[in-house]
Design a protein around this nucleic acid. Structure first.
Length: 597
RNA sequence: GCGCCUGUAGCUCAGUGGAUAGAGCACCCGCCUUCUAAGCGGAUUGUCGUAGGUUCAAAUCCUACCAGGCGCGCCA
């Protein structure tokens, strides 16, 4: 497979093999303090400081204790053996040295860098894929906002994080499904219906009181307008619970559609909108309660049904069915998660707002009580979003006093900026979202800068295909590159690594920038792996920003379109490889990759 | 009171036991007849919340404490 072939050509992997081989030979000669196998993993890292080379290995530091020798002595021994290896002498490593406190620092030669560019072209949109997910089936449930009002910026964070995680997991070899759980059960709709009906009647000129303590009338207004537009005054004929349920249900549908549309605009698409009501209709909640009872995990007391969650690690027992006879959300969650587990996923992820973290022990307990493995269910909590404008907190909203609505922010700063800023952060940390920064069309705005880098790559390519204007005479000359040449080149980029050697600068400083860029491109698979294993898609946003910075430096120092066709060909290949890496990253975080800006 | 999250440069944050703790912003100084100056280069910036402990090595692991956020319903 292509992926396994790339494994062998990854620079870090190759260096690791070289160090490993050196260790094996040294230990065979009895120079590793009696060790026959390497007891520590050999890790090749990129040093922070350029003086420490392009890549470094610190394994000697870790071996010191095992081999009962100093790190520097071990590193020197390893270095001597590395010198004798043929793999280290074919232009891949330009030089290497041992440095205190025992690192082996490598400086890379040009042929490995050419291999990297070639590899990106060979794999294109698949470049960076890693198989950490092993084709496991994972369900990501997120947003799951009540269908009783508009989505706010906190839902936006939840939505963007969930969608990025889904994209990342899919790229990293999971089979992903995305699901939105809709709290559309009878009681919820009745509560909504009461307010919606009053708002409906009042809009149609009837003088009725609006329910106190319900959803703010203003927050329902735009949805009631649509209900009236579609149905006219026909619900006025109904009365009592019938009217409440009818208007409630209609309003719920309108609201859910609005949520769906807004999320789609944000680049968030679910396989399934899972209805809570469907659980009730199919008596799934009763069935879940029966399972709990038969597993001896519930009991009746004070007229209510309780879950014995305390004996399953929770701080207290929790109510499943109130003395009123109604089920609690926990009982409904039992039915929902029973359904999820029965669908056979290897992993289920729930993404919740951090204000719900108190429910996690209850959910874990009930999953255990149902007889499932709670380790298959993970809850990720997303912290609050604070909005700022010029350093001052924003709290105003058209529809609510305290919460800022998602659509307002999307309208103001644009979908891409919203996605970037919500994607970039670690969900554990609160976000400080600066509206003015997000709108800036300059490098101050990383969202813009990242897209601009992609557009710049495209613009170089466009320029190469355009006629050239001679600066002195002013006359137009043929384009440096024709469409036909480009087609041929693209084929060669994917099949030959050597051609990229012509693009590297002789000048050490200029070559340094090119090398930084190529090594950055080389790091994408590793970045994807780390982001996927730590569930932090935001790392890729930061990575993309680094790629963009490296691109800009190379762009400044090395002209792509030159008089020398082989140089042009090689450098255009590097630029297009960079564009591909940026595009792959942007796709995961769900930000568009514009061809021009 | 108990639980969870957070504490790193003036600000926003990265740093998942290893080298001199890094970026961006802000501030200051340079750079446009050539592929987007919507840009690039340079300078300044630190009791890693505090105190102990583990380790050859701690921002990172352990313990206690301090500060901020959130949560502790027969609400959802």
């Amino acid at each position: 497979m292509v992926l396994s072939k790339w494994k062998q050509t990854m620079i870090k992997e190759r260096l690791k093999n070289i160090v490993e081989k050196a260790f094996v030979q040294a230990s065979r000669d009895g120079k590793m303090g009696g060790l026959s196998e390497c007891p520590e993993p050999i890790i090749i890292e990129r040093p922070k400081l350029p003086e420490h080379g392009d890549l470094a290995c610190g394994v000697a530091l870790k071996l010191a204790r095992h081999a009962k020798s100093s790190p520097v002595a071990i590193a020197n021994t390893l270095a001597e053996y590395i010198k004798t290896l043929p793999e280290a002498q074919n232009g891949c490593i330009s030089n290497f040295e041992v440095a205190n406190p025992g690192f082996i620092n490598f400086r890379l030669g040009k042929s490995w860098l050419a291999d990297v560019i070639h590899e990106v072209h060979a794999q294109k949109s698949n470049y960076g894929r890693e198989l950490v997910g092993e084709n496991k089936r994972v369900l990501i449930e997120y947003v799951s906002a009540n269908p009783t009002g508009s989505l706010h910026i906190g839902h936006g964070r939840n939505a963007v994080f969930g969608s990025c995680l889904a994209n990342l997991f899919a790229f990293a070899g999971y089979k992903v499904e995305q699901e939105f759980y809709v709290n559309d059960a009878g009681a919820q709709i009745a509560a909504l219906g009461e307010c919606a009906l009053a708002a409906y009647q009042r809009k149609l000129g009837q003088s009725v009181d609006y329910p106190e303590g319900g959803y703010p009338e203003e927050s329902l207004s735009e949805y009631i307008d649509i209900v009236i537009e579609r149905n006219g005054d026909k619900y006025l004929a109904l009365s009592g619970d019938e009217a409440i349920l009818a208007v409630g249900n209609e309003t719920k549908c309108v609201i859910q559609k609005a949520q769906e549309d807004l999320l789609e605009k944000l680049g968030v698409k679910f396989e399934r909108w899972f209805s809570e009501e469907s659980l009730h209709k199919a008596h799934k909640v009763d069935q879940a309660m029966a399972v709990l009872a038969s597993n001896n995990h519930s009991y009746e007391a004070d007229g209510a049904l309780w879950l014995k969650s305390k004996e399953l690690g929770d701080e207290r027992d929790r109510v499943l069915r109130k003395s009123s006879g109604d089920y609690t959300y926990l009982a409904n969650d039992a039915a929902y998660h029973l359904d999820k587990f029965n669908r056979g996923y290897d992993l289920m992820v729930n993404i919740w707002g951090a204000d719900h973290h108190g429910q996690v022990p209850g959910l874990k307990a009930i999953v255990t009580a149902l007889g499932f493995d709670p380790k298959k269910l993970e809850v990720v909590l997303t912290q609050i979003v604070n909005l700022n404008r010029d350093g001052k907190a924003v709290r105003m909203s058209k529809r609510r006093g305290t919460v800022v609505m998602l659509d307002e922010v999307m309208d103001e700063v644009g979908v891409d900026a919203v996605r970037y800023y919500l994607a970039e952060s670690n969900p554990n940390n609160p976000i400080n979202f600066d509206l003015e920064l997000a709108k800036k069309q300059s490098k101050d705005n990383p969202a813009f800068y990242l897209q601009y880098a992609h557009a710049r790559c495209c613009s170089i390519l466009r320029r190469a295909l355009e006629p050239v204007k001679d600066l002195e005479s002013g006359e137009l000359k043929d384009p440096v590159v024709t469409e036909q040449m480009l087609t041929e080149w693209e084929n060669e980029y994917a099949h030959r690594a050597n051609l990229f050697l012509a693009g590297f600068e002789e000048d050490e400083a200029k070559f340094g920038y090119q090398k930084s860029l190529v090594m950055r491109l080389e790091a994408l698979p590793q970045e994807v792996r780390e982001a996927a294993t730590s569930w932090q898609p935001g790392r890729l946003a930061s990575f993309g920003y680094e790629v963009a910075k490296d691109l800009m430096k190379t762009y400044e120092e090395s002209r792509v379109i030159t008089a020398d066709l082989s140089v042009t060909k090689a450098r255009l290949g590097l630029i297009m490889a960079t564009r591909q890496v940026l595009a792959n990253v942007l796709k995961i975080i769900g930000v568009s990759a514009p061809e021009r800006m």
